[in-house]
Computed example of a mutant assay.
Amino acid sequence: MANITFKGNAVTLLGSEVKVGDTAPNFTVLANDLSEVTLDDSKGSVRLISVVPSIDTGVCDAQTRKFNEAAAGLDNVKVLTVSVDLPFAQKRWCGANGIENVQTLSDHRDLSFGEAYGVHIQELRLLARAVFVVDSNDKVTYVEYVSEATDHPNYDGAIDAAKNAN
């Protein structure tokens, strides 16, 4: 498993670590209208999955804005942002910040995504910061578990991987 810290303190990640070349695990999360969303719902598209601890914090805000901006120029790429924030909070934040190119998804109910992708922080019941790119055939083509959860991910690496995935 990836070694992750949160504000300099080691944390325990639960679930299975995902690696490049793996078949992307399915998951069930909630959209802002409380409907269930799975990986299969976007089958046939490239998925850039941005994982944030809480959308209402500085780095998570910046990460979501950066991928929202990039999404406007990505063909056949769906950008999903997953956190354990409540769907209502995600909807409010997106509306207040003009986020229209990213779909925010909540894993608060049962941590299905967190467990499937190995990003569930046991001590905090949050998700570790990570980015995954999944191609249209459900193969993982890019993985970044950010070693310090309060640091930014490699935006350019993730965006380039999404552009190059089929």
Rank of each mutant, 00 (worst) to 15 (best):
residue 5 T to K: 15
residue 5 T to N: 12
residue 6 F to D: 04
residue 10 A to C: 07
residue 11 V to R: 11
residue 14 L to I: 03
residue 17 E to T: 09
residue 17 E to V: 01
residue 19 K to Y: 14
residue 19 K to Q: 12
residue 22 D to W: 15
residue 23 T to E: 14
residue 29 V to I: 11
residue 30 L to S: 05
residue 31 A to I: 02
residue 33 D to T: 07
residue 35 S to P: 04
residue 35 S to M: 06
residue 36 E to D: 10
residue 37 V to A: 06
residue 38 T to M: 11
residue 39 L to D: 02
residue 39 L to I: 02
residue 44 G to S: 06
residue 45 S to M: 08
residue 56 D to K: 00
residue 57 T to H: 07
residue 58 G to P: 09
residue 59 V to K: 10
residue 60 C to F: 00
residue 61 D to K: 07
residue 61 D to I: 01
residue 71 A to R: 03
residue 75 D to G: 09
residue 77 V to R: 00
residue 78 K to C: 06
residue 81 T to Q: 12
residue 84 V to N: 01
residue 85 D to Y: 01
residue 86 L to D: 11
residue 91 K to A: 11
residue 94 C to T: 10
residue 94 C to W: 02
residue 98 G to A: 11
residue 100 E to C: 07
residue 104 T to S: 09
residue 105 L to M: 09
residue 106 S to A: 08
residue 108 H to R: 15
residue 112 S to G: 08
residue 113 F to N: 00
residue 114 G to M: 09
residue 116 A to K: 02
residue 118 G to Y: 01
residue 118 G to T: 02
residue 119 V to C: 05
residue 122 Q to T: 12
residue 123 E to H: 14
residue 129 R to D: 07
residue 136 S to T: 05
residue 137 N to K: 14
residue 137 N to W: 12
residue 140 V to S: 02
residue 142 Y to H: 12
residue 143 V to N: 05
residue 146 V to M: 05
residue 146 V to Y: 04
residue 152 H to D: 10
residue 153 P to M: 07
residue 154 N to D: 15
residue 156 D to M: 04
residue 160 D to N: 14
residue 163 K to F: 06
residue 165 A to H: 05
residue 165 A to D: 02
residue 166 N to L: 07
